[in-house]
Amino acid sequence: MAHLIEIRDMYKIYAIGDEPVHALDGVSLAVDDGEFLAIMGASGSGKSTMLNILGCLDTPTRGSYLLDGIEVASRTRTELARIRNQKLGFVFQSFNLLSRTTALEQVELPDLYMGRLSHSARRRRAMELLERVGLKGRESHTPAQLSGGQQQRVAIARALMNNPPVLFADEPTGNLDTKSSVEIMNIFTELSNEGITIVMVTHEDDIAAYAKRHIVMRDGHVMVDDKADGGRRKTTDEVSRLVKEALS
């Protein structure tokens, strides 16, 4: 069976000064439809680079990337933009909402670029998504009027607007307090249960514990992958052990 995401022998090499830095050093990874994957590792391990390449925000130096059976490593910028628009959703650590823009307009934005829905259908879908992430009644709030957790929920609703099969999350709880983090992770869990594939980067063991599969990276290599372990949620302690294993 074809994987939803499949990268083979991928390199990302940055030339910093005279010394080339291998952010990804020949990584191969496959993610199947419906998986909830946490990419872990210390800073500089290559986990963010990996996520950016998987999210078509960055291009690899070398290697192959099949997304939904399509080779994307050699696509033009315009084609990549269309792929991001239609197949991928993003949730960032810093929310990345547009300032002075209402929650409703933020959520509508991906469809403005796609132009699939009519004005009223777009509005209706955005309202539904905001309700789904628990923001009913706050449609006309701007980011300044929302808490961090609420802003991240707007971002999740926006990521879901075009019904993407994959959601990428880069430290989604990095700027949130514990209570909001739990709320956000509960939403991710629900989405995962509904069948959306989620790829999340985090360095927090308790956040990674919500995922069903965990990989730990170090120096541009995948050191640990618990895919064989049945694809289930783990406890924070189990995750911590995985991380320690990678460092040893």
Binding site: L57, A81, R82, F92, Y113, M114
Partner: peptide, 16 residues
């Protein structure tokens, strides 16, 4: 610039 990045991330093409 962050707004531009975000717009591109959610599907704005260079032409857009």
């Amino acid at each position: 610039i962050k707004e531009i990045g975000l717009r591109m991330a959610i599907g704005a093409t260079p032409a857009t």
